[in-house]
């Protein structure tokens, strides 16, 4: 513990760099993942696409059972085959985006499906187009649940970003792995504790965001 403290007070800039890298990778991944997941989720929830939704969700679910370390491996293979960099930022972000899809997709689908059919019927009966129904009724009502999905995805992504240090993406996984390899307990503690704090902090922040984004009429 003491060594860890001494290391941080001697090299605060290193910890800051790891933390910033970590956050940056996670944010890029959640940003792209959110756009992708919500769009896809809305798309497959449309009427008549139920079989597609079933297959997509099942695939996403299976993807989650693939261990993240394995995922990095599979992606490295794929990327190097198509001539892209198999290590560093790119494979890390792609893996993280894919990994975050299940909670986002699942929550988007359930949230939209849960909207009371009477509300859709009322909207249709008043002359709303499909587009207006989506943006004025379905999405606002689905928002809290979609946000909860984003929060799950974000916590997941922060955790897996730590593992991404193995493929050279940087972040708070770097001191953990360095420490494990060289039996430097101080580095393990620094990495482990900081990444835990980061995860808890982001989780708390997103919980607040979730509450804040809920339309006032829906708050309990």
């Amino acid at each position: 513990m003491l060594e860890a403290y001494q290391f941080v007070s001697r090299h605060p800039e290193m910890l800051a760099k790891w933390a910033v890298d970590h956050l940056w990778i996670s944010l890029v991944a959640i940003g792209i993942g959110a756009v992708l997941g919500i769009t896809l989720g809305v798309f497959i929830t449309a009427k008549g696409r139920e079989p597609m939704a079933e297959v997509v969700l099942y695939f996403a679910e299976i993807m989650m059972t693939v261990p993240s370390l394995a995922f990095f491996g599979l992606l490295m293979l794929l990327l190097s085959h198509i001539g892209l960099s198999a290590i560093g930022f790119l494979p890390a972000v792609i893996t993280l985006i894919l990994y975050g899809q299940l909670p986002i997709l699942r929550n988007t689908c359930t949230a939209i499906r849960q909207v009371d059919p009477a509300l859709i019927e009322a909207g249709r009966g008043m002359g709303m187009s499909q587009r207006q129904l989506l943006f004025k009724i379905k999405l606002p009502l689905a928002l809290p649940v979609i946000m909860a999905g984003l929060r799950n995805a974000m916590v997941l992504i922060i955790g897996i970003t730590a593992i991404a240090a193995l493929i050279g993406a940087g972040g708070l996984g770097v001191p953990i792995f360095r420490g494990l390899r060289n039996a430097r307990m101080d580095l393990i503690i620094i990495g482990g504790v900081s990444v835990s704090i980061l995860a808890l902090l982001v989780d708390g922040l997103m919980a607040m965001l979730e509450r804040w984004i809920t339309p006032r009429g829906l708050r309990g």
Binding site: G159, A162, I176, L180, G192, V195
Partner: peptide
């Protein structure tokens, strides 16, 4: 649930010290 919010790598790595 706090236990699960903490990244798996952190939980495992911390066991070493």
């Amino acid at each position: 649930s706090v236990g699960q919010t903490i990244p798996s790598l952190a939980v495992i790595a911390i066991m070493a010290p």
